[in-house]
């Protein structure tokens, strides 16, 4: 019950922060902050992929509806949610994920988080900007946007976890 409530609150939090604050921040050279993939990344590992895909679709459509992107966010978030189990099993720790209560940065460590979440976020951003531009001759501009945005989004995602997720007590 508690996890359901906290994920529900997170859903609203990510939606509102993305739409009302981050969409308005303009850093320059096409850089865009997108933190909502963190919601999917923090869903429990053992969760059925159907359920997480449905969550991704709902969150994506809500963000699209409020930022006039007509399905762009939905499409890239679906890619993120679909690849998440594949990437997570490829980077699984030695004991699997049984010991882990949530795949946040405190539990898994920075290096795991950088590898798995970073890779997924890179794919998500690359999909988003490629689909948005939809022109092969602008590929360098797409790559430039992707790389700059991934770095900024990743930093914000890490900061959010340090700010809002309590560190588990050492036992």
């Amino acid at each position: 019950m508690n996890t359901i409530l906290s994920h529900g609150l997170r859903f609203g939090f990510f939606l509102l922060v993305q739409v009302l604050i981050l969409n308005q921040i303009e850093i320059g050279v096409g850089t865009q902050l997108m933190i909502y993939p963190l919601f999917i990344a923090l869903l429990p590992v053992e969760m059925n992929t159907f359920v997480s895909l449905s969550f991704a679709f709902t969150l994506g459509v809500s963000i699209d509806a409020m930022s006039n992107t007509y399905g762009l966010h939905t499409s890239s978030l679906l890619v993120f949610a679909y690849l998440k189990p594949i990437v997570y099993s490829a980077f699984a720790p030695r004991d699997g994920y049984d010991q882990v209560s949530e795949t946040n940065i405190h539990e898994m460590g920075l290096s795991w988080f950088l590898r798995s979440f970073g890779l997924l976020l890179l794919i998500h951003h690359l999909w988003f900007f490629t689909l948005e531009m939809f022109k092969l001759n602008e590929i360098l501009f797409v790559l430039q946007k992707t790389i700059l945005s991934v770095i900024m989004s990743f930093i914000v995602c890490i900061l959010l976890q340090y700010l809002f997720i309590r560190k588990p007590k050492e036992t």
Partner: peptide, 12 residues
């Protein structure tokens, strides 16, 4: 995944 992706891309 393909079904949902199809919906999203159609909308886009």
């Amino acid at each position: 995944f393909a079904l949902l992706q199809g919906i999203a891309l159609t909308i886009y």
